[in-house]
């Protein structure tokens, strides 16, 4: 299991808990429903992530349910968890090659909490375009065609993210309802 994926799913789980307490099974189901394009969370990953969040004081055990079946722990977000969630939602990602999924996680989580995702999307566009500016300048300065071709690949992937950011902002604009 990849530690980085674990960290980011942690914030998605915090986003779900911010709407109300839930147990591991519900968290997995809700996570997968919210991010239909992403890899489903494994149960092991859910419990490992919850254990880490609990260790860091970001979630607390609300109750332990026992309706006939096996015992189930219900988790809730802590004040420190709420703080960490809001900070994550507001912070644009460095536009490296692996940021893409994190952008989706933040936007979806914000919208589910009825928060306006557009300031984040705008800030992220500015960072991405800055990076694009650097790559285009590098490409203009490149003498060899192979260097230009290699840079094209990075530029087009960044462009895919930029186009997604635009489409996301346009959809949020249209669906004012999400922000009620």
């Amino acid at each position: 299991m990849c530690i980085v994926a674990d960290m980011s799913s942690g914030h998605v789980l915090l986003g779900i808990l911010a709407a109300g307490p839930a147990h591991g099974y519900d968290l997995k189901r809700e996570h997968d429903a919210r991010l239909p394009g992403a890899k489903p969370l494994a149960y092991g990953q859910v419990y490992a992530t919850l254990a880490r969040l609990q260790r860091d004081g970001l979630v607390e055990v609300a109750t332990t349910e026992n309706d006939g079946g096996p015992e189930r722990t219900v988790y809730d977000i802590s004040p420190a968890g709420e703080e960490s969630l809001l900070e994550w939602l507001a912070t644009p990602e460095p536009p490296g090659p692996y940021a893409a999924e994190e952008l989706v996680r933040k936007t979806v989580t914000a919208l589910r909490l009825h928060r306006d995702a557009r300031p984040f999307l705008g800030a992220q566009r500015a960072l991405h375009l800055d990076r694009m500016r650097g790559l285009v300048a590098e490409q203009r300065a490149a003498v060899d065609v192979d260097a230009r071709i290699a840079l094209d690949h990075t530029i087009f992937h960044l462009d895919a993210d930029l186009r997604w950011l635009e489409a996301a902002a346009a959809r949020v604009n249209e669906e004012g309802t999400l922000l009620r």
Partner: peptide, 11 residues
């Protein structure tokens, strides 16, 4: 075109 926009100093 984002690539063209990246030729600009500012947006």
């Amino acid at each position: 075109d984002n690539r063209v926009a990246a030729y600009a100093d500012r947006e």
